[in-house]
Amino acid sequence: MKPYQQIEIVECGEPLLPIPLELFAVESPHPYQKLGATYGERSPYHLRQRVLTNLLQAQAQLQLRYPGWRIQIFDAYRPIAVQQFMVDYTFGQVLQAQGLTLAELSAAQRQVIWEQVYQIWAVPSLDPHTPPPHSTGAAVDITLVDTTGKTVNMGSAIDELSARSHPDYFANSTDPAEQQYHSHRQLLWEVMGSAGFQRHPGEWWHFSFGDQMWVWLTNQENPDNSAVARYGWVESPSD
């Protein structure tokens, strides 16, 4: 169990709404659908009502600073089945990268790989007390595009399983290109933070509002805060 999963959830019942994709940049088809993930009847481009409102506010802040720039949505709502698919897919990718096969792994080797996978992927838990953040409709993975529609370079890919995924990885670099990467990550954080989001401590692209991780991070900033999470797991219509 991760620390944020100890936060109590009091589900508010807020609806999961479709994201107006014409207002944002979006990759189509969805990156995980291209890998073979099945979402069923509901598109991955959904968020809870308040989360969507805040995301629109973040984009408005971005465009005050950089007219014509947009938030690009990589992933939003993720059913448990897709969470499981991506966890298994990532495990397989790590095996392939290391030139290993599942049959030859020792128990210790298998554990090491799972620890790598769960650095960026939440356990696909069906326990209502420990939902993966994206399965609540309160988390969104994003980057930025400029006025030409080109994706802004953040220095690493979304979902990259490496130290470069850490938001501050390039913070102390003296290399001009890497300083620019950090500047872009800071811009993303500033516009999202201005709209009430919290950023995942280990992922520059992951932001949430109202879920367990958001409360846990908010409580760390204010130890006197005793808030509870307002968003729990949302069942997929096809589940």
Score class of each variant (00 low, 15 high):
residue 119 Q to P: 01
residue 53 T to L: 12
residue 135 S to N: 14
residue 217 L to V: 00
residue 104 E to M: 03
residue 120 I to P: 00
residue 133 P to I: 15
residue 148 T to L: 15
residue 161 L to C: 03
residue 38 T to P: 06
residue 101 T to M: 10
residue 19 I to H: 00
residue 162 S to W: 08
residue 141 D to C: 10
residue 29 P to D: 07
residue 75 D to L: 12
residue 155 G to I: 05
residue 25 A to K: 01
residue 206 H to Y: 15
residue 17 L to H: 02
residue 140 V to F: 00
residue 45 Y to D: 11
residue 157 A to C: 13
residue 74 F to L: 00
residue 154 M to A: 11
residue 123 V to D: 03
residue 77 Y to L: 07
residue 98 Q to L: 07
residue 124 P to L: 11
residue 144 L to Y: 02
residue 163 A to W: 12
residue 190 E to M: 09
residue 185 R to C: 11
residue 134 H to Y: 08
residue 109 Q to V: 04
residue 188 L to Q: 01
residue 238 S to E: 10
residue 154 M to V: 01
residue 78 R to N: 05
residue 115 E to P: 01
residue 92 G to S: 03
residue 9 I to A: 02
residue 151 T to V: 13
residue 32 Y to L: 14
residue 82 V to M: 02
residue 14 E to V: 02
residue 233 W to D: 13
residue 209 F to R: 05
residue 136 T to E: 08
residue 170 F to M: 08
residue 225 N to E: 02
residue 49 Q to T: 11
residue 79 P to I: 02
residue 46 H to F: 15
residue 28 S to Q: 15
residue 112 V to A: 13
residue 138 A to V: 03
residue 57 Q to L: 15
residue 15 P to G: 07
residue 3 P to W: 08
residue 23 L to G: 09
residue 188 L to S: 03
residue 77 Y to R: 06
residue 14 E to A: 12
residue 84 Q to R: 14
residue 89 Y to W: 15
residue 5 Q to S: 09
residue 189 W to Q: 11
residue 203 E to V: 05
residue 19 I to Y: 01
residue 60 A to C: 11
residue 139 A to R: 12
residue 140 V to I: 08
residue 149 G to A: 04
residue 16 L to R: 08
residue 27 E to Y: 14
residue 130 T to Y: 11
residue 154 M to R: 10
residue 142 I to E: 04
residue 78 R to H: 06
residue 108 A to Y: 04
residue 137 G to N: 01
residue 226 S to L: 10
residue 178 E to A: 08
residue 100 L to Y: 03
residue 109 Q to R: 10
residue 239 D to A: 13
residue 229 A to F: 05
residue 100 L to S: 02
residue 18 P to W: 04
residue 214 W to D: 15
residue 120 I to E: 05
residue 71 I to F: 05
residue 179 Q to P: 05
residue 238 S to H: 13
residue 151 T to K: 15
residue 214 W to Q: 05
residue 8 E to Q: 02
residue 176 P to H: 04
residue 102 L to G: 00
residue 146 D to H: 00
residue 170 F to D: 13
residue 15 P to L: 09
residue 218 T to G: 03
residue 188 L to E: 00
residue 166 H to W: 09
residue 63 Q to L: 11
residue 103 A to L: 10
residue 43 S to Q: 11
residue 125 S to F: 06
residue 177 A to N: 09
residue 101 T to K: 11
residue 145 V to T: 06
residue 34 K to R: 14
residue 156 S to G: 08
residue 124 P to S: 06
residue 59 Q to N: 12
residue 53 T to A: 13
residue 84 Q to G: 05
